[in-house]
Design a binder for these strands. Structure first.
Lengths: 339, 339
DNA sequence: GCAGGCTCTTGAGACGATTCAATAGTTTGC
DNA sequence: GCAAACTATTGAATCGTCTCAAGAGCCTGC
């Protein structure tokens, strides 16, 4: 451990600790000669500031927690990248925490972050109901919900998932599909529920001509997408849907793999549309159509809101920012032709 | 900010701060009645321990920094996942930092981590020469090099990249390729240099029958892989290599996309082999052959070494752990047939 | 020569939790 | 009944830094 402290520096430079602190924080008020001596002592001892002590004194840290549902999902990595870009400009550190869709892990991370007195937390919650979060906010840690609209208790940034689902559904229906499966995850995740509601409303708008099936998995991963794909592929052709709308691209990629391994052609036998438009979607076996979200912008906006709240808590009014998704059509949802 | 402190709890429970601390840390030595009163006060006030103060007092934290070359590369996400799994079992937090291949960013992250007095740092350095790192170690922060063999100054975990390159090269040669391009990144990155050395030695072993070209990019990303792919695709067919060995899967995916957009068939016109075997490699347009590394195991082993060093610095001897890569053959490197 | 105004520097008191020697109170053993 | 042993609690010191009121010099102007 770098164990040299400001006191040793002060001794070596023959000044008081207060002066060393001044050299570090307001060098202009220290005389050049003294400043030089202090710098030399710092260098000689290899002194490194103890940020922990500074925080304790200051009462607040320059760290923001970002709790995401799945670090393995590039969507969240992009959100994090956006947030970090802004944080960098504000001398702030972002610590990335992975709840992996597990409320227990989420809670442990939140506890840890609160105990560390982070400046604030950006979070994509596992569940729609978030009593811990509300307590945490009540105790004074600012929170911004990411990719999940808030109830007014705090700020949030989100993309209109209902609209996204609707766009995806309308697209598949327009392409001639009459039997569509929604490949989703736990409906407790707000985004999943909304996307499902969106596709459901698109189907309803078709006036009964289109049938919507639903498959749910415990997590939005490639493996779960593949598992559902296996089950769908195993259906007798007459019962099998001709198109799948997946709750995210990870699932879509897994679903796509299952189609391939069962000899089903995409999009001829099965059209697929994903969600998020992660970079890997375009590089997939069959380039994936997907509902695109402004990933980095979500992260940037979230931390902007947080920094705004922190810098002027009195003036701050909570805001709910909502972005629009848009559809990226690639090969996986080419027009339906009955074989 | 959760601003209630141990003192207020003590007042409300009508005990001393020492007793509150005891309730928190050694509840068994406090009488049940007192303990209960303190718990009630804690609950009533919504008291949350200040980890910063604990840390200051204790002098050491329960946090480990993990500095990676590229968070957008799932390889590193998997390494991080492995490390976090072990950390979880030791009540330790992993802070993920992204150097993005930029020495400046790397240095800023290292400074930050040192100032926060983290327990130790796991890092995949941007450059082979690492003077800052050595100073950091000299000042007392334990460091474990990840995916990069150390010089003996500290522990390291790595995969034999030279062997990996050799395996990939031998495989392509065995498949009949006589003109191979190495799609690499900055040679300052040790892994890249080693993989290149490996393929070079495989080519040398062929006794002059095989020609090896080299393309380098400033970063190991999908975009850079695509850019190199564009250049290679533009070569006259006679000069064009028939196989590409990419420094990692991200580049391979980009390279693959470029082939597709130029109408070159993989593997008929161009065989491709990647490195890392990330999950997306199997889901690519043409499933990618790749040199597999034990990704999570790297992370687990790295933090194991770190925890070992921290828990008993006297006894600890630095170790260099080296794993073996193995080849995963998929469609992208099917046998070469002259068109 | 001295008041008043500078410029630097100092030193003490937070910040919030932990630790430990000291103390008060209770039980046990004989 | 009293010393010894034990239990429960206290209070002060400590970790490393920052802040700020106060002080020490020094200069300037009259």
């Amino acid at each position: 451990m770098a164990t040299t402290n400001i006191k040793e520096v002060a001794q070596l430079a023959r000044v008081s600790v207060g002066t060393v602190s001044n050299v570090l924080n307001r060098p202009e008020i220290v005389s050049p000669a003294t400043r030089e001596r202090v710098f030399e002592a710092i260098k000689k001892l290899g002194f490194v500031r103890n940020e922990v002590a500074r925080h304790l004194r200051a009462g607040r840290s320059r760290t923001v927690g970002l709790v995401v549902l799945d670090v393995a999902n590039p969507f969240f990595v992009d959100v994090a990248t956006g947030a970090e870009a802004v944080a960098d400009d504000h001398d702030t550190m972002v610590v990335l925490c992975n709840s992996a869709g597990d409320p227990g892990r989420e809670r442990r991370h939140l506890d840890q972050l609160e105990q560390q007195r982070v400046m604030g937390i950006l979070i994509t919650p596992v569940e729609a109901e978030t009593p811990w979060l509300e307590e945490l906010v009540a105790r004074g840690t600012p929170v911004v919900l990411v990719d999940s609209p808030a109830t007014g208790l705090q700020c949030s940034v989100a993309v209109d998932d209902r609209l996204g689902g609707q766009i995806a559904g309308a697209h598949l229906i327009e392409r001639g599909h009459r039997r569509i499966v929604f490949v989703g995850g736990p409906p407790s995740i707000k985004q999943v529920a909304d996307r499902q509601a969106g596709v459901t409303s698109a189907v309803a708008a078709s006036g009964g001509a289109v049938e919507l099936l639903t498959a749910t998995a415990p997590a939005l991963t490639v493996a779960e997408g593949r598992a559902i794909g296996e089950r769908v592929a195993a259906l007798p052709p007459a019962e099998r849907p001709t198109a799948a709308f997946c709750a995210n691209d990870m699932m879509a990629l897994g679903f796509l793999q299952a189609m391939a391994s069962h000899g089903l052609r995409v999009p001829a036998d099965m059209a697929i549309i994903g969600y998020d438009d992660i970079d890997f979607a375009a590089a997939a076996a069959v380039p994936l159509s997907s509902v695109r979200q402004p990933r980095e912008l979500l992260g940037r906006t979230a931390i902007d809101l947080l920094l705004e709240e922190v810098s002027d808590p009195e003036q701050h009014r909570h805001r709910q920012v909502i972005f629009q998704p848009d559809l990226v059509v690639r090969d996986s949802s080419a027009p339906y032709r009955s074989s």
